[in-house]
Lab assay of single mutants.
Amino acid sequence: MKVIFLKDVKGKGKKGEIKNVADGYARNFLFKQGLAIEATPANLKELE
């Protein structure tokens, strides 16, 4: 799953980066902790 990092995550990505991560990792950790959001077309447009 592609995500947009909202904060730096050690060993995974830095704020503003778009990366592929495991679905479970994204849903169970990154999204719940507010560290990333899903890289949907709408979210990508907001990032620009």
Score class of each variant (00 low, 15 high):
E46A: 14
K7Y: 11
A39T: 02
L47V: 10
Q33I: 07
K2R: 14
D8V: 02
G34A: 07
L47K: 07
T40N: 08
L30K: 00
D23G: 12
G34P: 00
Y25P: 06
V3F: 00
G34F: 07
K12W: 15
D8P: 04
L47E: 06
A36F: 00
G11Q: 05
E46H: 13
V3Y: 00
K19V: 12
L30R: 01
L30M: 03
V9G: 01
A42Q: 14
K10D: 12
T40D: 05
V3D: 01
R27I: 15
K10G: 07
A22S: 15
K7F: 12
L30F: 04
T40L: 06
E38S: 06
A39R: 01
V9D: 01
K14A: 08
E38G: 03
G24M: 11
V21W: 02
A36D: 00
L35E: 03
E38A: 11
L47Q: 09
K45L: 12
N43D: 07
V21Y: 04
K10W: 13
I18E: 03
A39Y: 14
G11K: 05
K12Y: 15
K10F: 10
Q33R: 12
G11H: 06
A42G: 10
L6T: 07
I18V: 14
Y25Q: 06
K15L: 09
K7N: 06
L47Y: 14
N28W: 10
A39N: 02
A36R: 00
M1T: 13
R27Q: 10
A26L: 13
G34E: 07
G11R: 05
G16R: 02
F31N: 03
N20M: 15
F31D: 04
M1N: 04
D8G: 04
L30A: 00
F29K: 08
Q33M: 14
K45V: 10
F31A: 03
N28E: 15
K15D: 01
M1V: 14
K45S: 11
G24L: 10
K19T: 08
N28Q: 10
K32H: 11
K2T: 14
G13E: 02
F5L: 08
V3G: 00
K32L: 14
F31R: 01
V9N: 01
E48V: 12
A36N: 01
I4H: 01
G34L: 07
V9Q: 02
L44A: 06
V3I: 09
A26E: 11
K15R: 12
L6S: 02
G13K: 00
V9L: 06
I4R: 03
L6V: 08
A22Y: 11
E46L: 15
L30G: 01
E38I: 08
K10R: 14
K10P: 15
G16F: 09
L44K: 06
K45T: 09
F5K: 00
G13W: 12
Y25K: 06
I4L: 09
Y25E: 08
A36G: 04
G16P: 01
G11N: 09
K32T: 13
G13H: 11
G34T: 03
A36W: 01
K7S: 10
F31L: 12
P41Q: 10
G24H: 13
M1I: 15
A22D: 15
N20T: 15
N43V: 11
K19R: 12
K2W: 15
F31G: 03
K14D: 07
N43Q: 08
T40I: 06
K14G: 06
K12T: 12
G34W: 05
K45D: 08
E17H: 04
I18Y: 03
G11P: 03
K19N: 04
K19M: 10
N20D: 13
Y25W: 09
M1A: 05
L35V: 05
V9W: 05
V9F: 04
V9A: 03
T40W: 05
K32W: 08
F29D: 12
I37P: 00
D23Q: 13
R27K: 13
F31Y: 05
V21M: 09
M1G: 03
G34S: 06
K45G: 09
L47P: 06
L35Y: 09
I37R: 06
D8H: 06
I4G: 00
L35R: 02
L44F: 06
K2G: 05
V21G: 00
K12Q: 14
D8W: 04
K10Q: 13
R27N: 08
L6K: 02
K2Y: 14
M1R: 07
T40F: 05
E46G: 12
K7L: 09
M1H: 07
D23V: 14
F5I: 01
T40H: 05
K32V: 15
A39G: 04
A26M: 08
E48H: 13
R27T: 11
L6I: 10
T40V: 06
M1Q: 06
G24V: 10
A39W: 13
L44G: 04
K32Q: 12
A36K: 00
G13R: 00
K12P: 01
T40R: 04
T40M: 05
F31T: 08
K12L: 15
T40K: 06
I18N: 00
G16A: 03
G24Q: 10
N28K: 10
E17M: 06
G24F: 10
L35I: 07
E38P: 14
N28S: 08
A22F: 09
L44R: 07
E38M: 09
N43R: 11
V21L: 05
E48I: 14
A22K: 11
G11M: 04
E17I: 03
G34H: 09
V3M: 02
K14F: 11
F29I: 15
A42W: 05
L35N: 02
F31V: 09
K15V: 09
P41H: 11
A22V: 10
Y25T: 05
R27Y: 13
L6Q: 03
D8F: 05
R27M: 12
G11E: 05
E46M: 15
K7V: 14
D8K: 03
I18W: 03
K19A: 11
L44M: 11
V3S: 00
K19Y: 07
T40S: 09
P41L: 12
L30Q: 01
K12M: 15
M1S: 05
L35Q: 04
G16M: 04
V21H: 01
A42P: 07
Y25A: 06
L30S: 00
K32P: 15
E46D: 11
G11L: 04
I4P: 00
K10M: 11
V21R: 00
P41D: 13
R27V: 13
Y25F: 10
V21N: 01
V3T: 01
A36T: 01
G34R: 07
K2V: 13
L30W: 03
